[in-house]
């Protein structure tokens, strides 16, 4: 992993500083009951997880949108997380406790792409927890709506 990242970095040195800086920034921090206690994941590391696309409407936008990202349970499995809930924290310090069961009951993804475009920090990016709201009636509830954390940057597994 490290070797490959190193090779990739060497290959991309020539492309440009900004892009390089973006790709090496830590995009998501995971703390709590995971293997190693702390994980800092870069964009590349997140994109290396199997990507999943779901189509759903949201409560803050009009119409149906296509979201692409990785399954939350894939991430937790990848990190060897043990616990029953995850505290998701946004950049504006918005924090919500989400039961881990949600990720196994539903295909909850962490989206980095909406409608074919990468999510950005000045909108709802770079990461947005998206529930497959249209596929399950149970998810069309305000008690699930507040779990849609955007501008996500940290997860704490408890």
């Amino acid at each position: 992993m490290r070797m490959r990242t190193g090779a990739l970095m060497a290959g991309l040195m020539l492309v440009g500083g900004a892009a390089l800086a973006d790709r090496n920034d830590v995009m998501l921090q995971v703390t709590g009951q995971i293997a190693g206690g702390v994980a800092a994941l870069t964009r590349d590391a997140l994109h290396a997880l199997p990507s999943v696309t779901i189509e759903t409407s949201t409560v803050v936008t009009d119409g149906v949108h296509s979201f692409t990202g990785f399954l939350m349970r894939d991430l937790l499995d990848h990190l060897g997380a043990e616990g029953d809930r995850v505290t998701a924290i946004a950049m504006n310090d918005y924090a919500v406790d989400i039961p881990i069961a949600d990720f196994y009951d539903y295909d909850v993804i962490v989206a980095y792409d909406m409608g074919g475009e990468a999510l950005t920090r000045d909108d709802k990016g770079p990461l947005w927890i998206v529930y497959p709201r249209d596929d399950h009636d149970a998810l069309q509830d305000i008690r699930f709506d507040y779990r849609w954390v955007w501008q996500l940057y940290r997860l704490d597994v408890q």
């Binding site: 803050v60 936008t61 009009d62 504006n92 950005t120 000045d122 909108d123 709802k124």
Partner: peptide, 19 residues
């Protein structure tokens, strides 16, 4: 830049359909 992006995202949210 982070704080400005936060404000920008709020304005963007307000300009979204329902809001």
């Amino acid at each position: 830049a982070l704080r400005f992006d936060m404000l920008t995202s709020r304005i963007a949210l307000l300009n979204d359909g329902p809001q």
